[in-house]
């Protein structure tokens, strides 16, 4: 209220009083309307008029957090949907939390409904989450930096707490999708086992288990876990065409890790072929009766697989590691 009184300082006492009263009532009315809207929908959809009335024009004693976004499918903004979901969680958590008060409201502007607001604020990217403080104009820090903080609800809440001192506890609607998927899988497996209850031989199929174990190993040693955690691009596009191999040893692309998994797999297959051709381990000597020609061919093919693909692997590694001196067959 300080600002309004200051503004009114030059008026006559009577006008001052009515002015204060009227701003008071305007404010109360606004807050009431906003509360009503929030009760219906925890994120208030704003158009130009509403935006001007509730967000920009005084009197205000509340903070307004507004997300500027472009949700229409034609805009093809994939991240907008994610941010919207997280933002909705934040707004809902606040709406249904014991700390709920009328000092903070959540709004949202869609580009297709309020492109003039975007122009007014000179925004040319979406999504943006901005905070409009109760007093004064938004500062640079009042726009949230997704790149550094991330788009998780926790990050948004931390940022809001930073800007407004309102503490919100995230209440995520329990994510049943994982449980459902797990239950489905369980039911599927159980059902499958039940249907095949008279013929469970396949569970004793060592070949199948061995293949599963090997696939898991290939996934891990080719750095799929790194991809999962760091989320690198599939490959890198440059002016000179796509780059499939990351130049540094501390990074990798998704496609690169697939290539490495295939190279590893080829070496393993080559080596297994050689072993089988040479007679195999006791117990897997099915090929003993083969004629020598075919065994020789299989050995040579296996050897070529091992040497060529290992050399390829080595040269890819060499390209990534600075100053690595060794190579085999290929530079």
């Amino acid at each position: 209220m300080k600002t309004t009184i200051k503004l009114a300082g030059c008026y006559h006492h009577l006008t001052l009083l009515t002015f204060v009263l009227s701003t008071q009532s305007v404010l109360e009315e606004k807050v009431e309307q906003l509360t009503d809207m929030t009760a219906k929908q925890s994120i208030i959809h704003l158009n130009l008029n509403k935006f001007k009335e509730y967000v920009r024009s005084p009197p205000r004693d509340y903070s307004f957090v507004v997300m500027f976004t472009a949700m229409a499918p034609s805009r093809r903004c994939a991240i907008c949907q994610h941010v919207y979901e997280e933002y909705l969680i934040v707004a809902n958590s606040f709406r249904f939390s014991p700390a709920y008060n009328t000092k903070l409201f959540f709004g949202m502007v869609d580009f297709d409904e309020g492109s003039d607001i975007f122009q007014m604020l000179r925004l040319n990217t979406a999504p943006v989450i901005m905070h409009f403080p109760a007093k004064g104009k938004p500062k640079p820090a009042d726009s949230m930096d997704f790149e550094r903080a991330g788009i998780h609800a926790e990050a948004i809440i931390k940022w809001i707490q930073d800007r407004t001192d309102v503490q919100i506890r995230v209440f995520r609607p329990p994510n049943y999708s994982g449980v459902v998927a797990f239950a489905m899988l369980f039911i599927l497996v159980a059902g499958f086992l039940y249907l095949r209850r008279n013929n469970l031989e396949f569970l004793y199929n060592k070949q199948m288990w061995a293949v599963v174990a090997l696939l898991f190993c290939f996934a891990m040693v080719s750095g799929q876990m790194w991809n999962q955690i760091r989320g690198p691009p599939f490959f890198h596009r440059t002016k000179n065409g796509p780059v499939y191999i990351n130049g540094g040893s501390h990074g990798q692309f998704v496609l690169e890790s697939y290539i490495v998994a295939i190279l590893n797999g080829a070496v393993v297959i080559g080596m297994i072929m050689m072993i089988e051709a040479a007679g195999g381990v006791k117990g897997t000597e099915a090929q003993r009766a083969q004629d020598g020609k075919r065994r020789r061919l299989q050995t040579v093919v296996g050897l070529v697989l091992v040497c060529v693909f290992f050399s390829l692997l080595l040269s890819v590694f060499r390209a990534k590691t600075q100053g690595y001196p060794y190579s085999f067959l290929f530079k």
Binding site: K206, V221, G223, I229, S257, V268, F310
Partner: peptide, 29 residues
């Protein structure tokens, strides 16, 4: 987390031969 080049740096040829050993261990369990 570990990149594939760390695996290769630390294990070299073993990284593409140990699955063979695993294969025969599973097959002759």
């Amino acid at each position: 987390p570990t990149t594939w080049s760390s695996f290769f740096f630390d294990l070299h040829v073993l990284v593409c031969t140990f699955p063979v050993g695993l294969w025969y261990c599973v097959k002759n369990i």
